[in-house]
Amino acid sequence: MTITQLKYVLAVAESQNFTKAAEKTFVTQPTLSMQIQKLEEELEIQIFDRTKKPIELTTVGQRIVEQARNIVNESERMQDVVDQEKGFIGGSYKLGIIPTVMPTLLPMFLKTFSTRYPKVQLKIEELNTDEIITKINDGYLDAAIAATPLKQERIKERPIYYEPFVAYIPENHRLAPKDTIEAKDLDIEDVLLLEDGHCFRDGIINLCKASKNGSFEKFQLESGSFETLVKLADEGLGMTLVPYLHTLDVSPNQTKNLKYFKEPSPAREVSLIYSKSELKMQITNVLYDVISGIIRGAIAFQDVKIISPLKK
């Protein structure tokens, strides 16, 4: 049994396809298939049910994959120990980012980080929170940037910044005359929301629930992007809430429709999260330093109230 064989097994388990797994691990399909077959013969079991399309793990195969993941992670920890001892900051680093953070935060830090640490091969994937949690726990991500707290036993959270909610209220809306707003002013039936699956949507619902305003049984309209929500609000279909960094990209003509909350402002906590196994911490630490150093100049809000992203 070799570490390489276990890596091949994990690749097939993830992609559910031998050809894709071979491409991912940079070997030919016959080589990958032969090595997995050798492992199955050695263990005298079948790891994969090849009659299924896509390929599925057998019952014992599921347990083998869990153990293989632990072994591969521990083997990578050995190299990690060596890299840290040598002060080497480089190699592959897989980072997940939630969709409501990706378009605003990534352009702010990516070039600086890549310039400062050119030996790090940063692989970035846009994922929702549930996908991020699963991939961190399964060892497919080294870290992620997500709204917290998430209360996951096997995941550590390191807050980077606190991003206030800002209301976008068109001129013809009932709240337009107000200079500032409060949570009690919101009516969930009047708020345009992101579609289900976005943690920012859940934060807004939690905020409205806290004010006990609205029935929460239906929503007028939902969309996949803040830009669409703002356009719909401009059409007189309601109001919406956006994270503060997104307000930096609205047009000058739309700025007048932005309304801030009375302090303490409702806000989301955005954190760098990673497994408690703490692999590749030398990269995680410098990534945190770069992002927090840059974001400090963009968000100066202090008096905020963190709204949970967890569904209630």
Results as ranks from 00 to 15, higher is better:
L110M: 12
N70C: 10
P243K: 09
L150E: 06
A68P: 13
L95H: 03
T4H: 04
M239W: 04
F88Y: 11
P54W: 01
H173T: 04
V191E: 06
D83E: 14
Q220D: 12
E66A: 11
K38R: 15
I45T: 11
D190P: 10
V72T: 12
C208K: 00
F219M: 06
Y140G: 00
I124C: 12
D138Q: 14
I47Y: 06
N137C: 13
F109N: 11
G197F: 02
E76G: 07
Q121D: 13
E278T: 09
I64K: 05
E217F: 09
I55P: 02
K20W: 02
S33Q: 07
I169T: 10
Q282N: 15
E42H: 13
L193P: 07
N257A: 10
T284N: 03
Q29N: 02
S271G: 01
I169L: 04
L248H: 13
N285P: 00
S308M: 06
V9S: 06
V9Y: 00
T284E: 01
Q254F: 03
K178W: 11
I145L: 14
T31H: 10
N128D: 15
L310C: 09
V286W: 03
I3G: 05
F109Y: 15
K151F: 14
D179M: 11
L207Q: 05
A176L: 10
E56K: 15
G96P: 07
E235F: 13
R174H: 08
E126R: 15
E189R: 14
